[in-house]
Amino acid sequence: MASVRRDRSERLWLRYLILGSWAIVCLAPMLWFLTIGFRPRTEIIVPHPIYWPSWSLDAWRLLVSDWPIASYLRNSVVAVAGSVVIDLVLAIPAAYALSRYEFRGREDIGFYILSTRMMAPAIVAVPIFFLFKNIGLLDTVWALMLVYAAINLSLVTWIIRSYMLDIPKELEDAARTDGAGDLTILREIIIPACLPGIITAAVIAAIFAINEFLFTLLIASTSKAYTMSVALANFTGGSDGIIYNAIALVSFLAFVPILIVVILIQKHLSRGLTMGAVKG
Rank of each mutant, 00 (worst) to 15 (best):
G237I: 11
E172M: 02
L165A: 10
A209C: 08
S162W: 01
I265G: 03
I160M: 05
S251M: 08
M228P: 00
N211W: 05
R187V: 04
M228H: 04
G237E: 03
I191G: 05
A209Y: 07
A201V: 02
T200I: 00
L218T: 14
T177Q: 11
G238P: 03
L171A: 04
G238E: 05
A209H: 05
E172T: 04
F215V: 06
A175N: 07
D166E: 15
E172L: 02
A206Q: 09
G238Y: 10
I210H: 09
L253F: 14
S221M: 12
A202N: 04
P168F: 10
N234W: 08
T216S: 15
Y163L: 03
S239Y: 12
A209D: 08
A248H: 03
L195Q: 05
K267T: 15
V203F: 05
Y226A: 03
T216F: 06
I190D: 03
R187G: 13
L259W: 13
T222S: 15
L264A: 15
F255M: 14
D240C: 06
A248S: 11
G241F: 09
L249V: 07
A205Q: 03
N245T: 08
T227L: 02
G241N: 10
K169V: 10
G241V: 09
D178A: 08
L186T: 01
C194Q: 01
V230R: 11
L183C: 02
T236P: 06
L183Q: 09
R187A: 11
G237A: 07
V250A: 14
L249S: 02
S251G: 12
L195F: 06
I265H: 04
I160R: 02
G237Q: 08
S162G: 15
G181E: 11
A231N: 00
A205D: 05
V261D: 07
T222D: 10
S223D: 07
A202K: 01
V250C: 07
L171Y: 14
V261Q: 01
V203D: 02
P257F: 11
D173P: 08
T177L: 13
G179Y: 00
G181H: 08
L165K: 15
I185D: 06
I242W: 02
A193E: 12
F235S: 05
K267H: 14
I247V: 13
M164I: 14
E212P: 04
T222W: 13
I189P: 01
G238I: 12
R176F: 00
F208N: 11
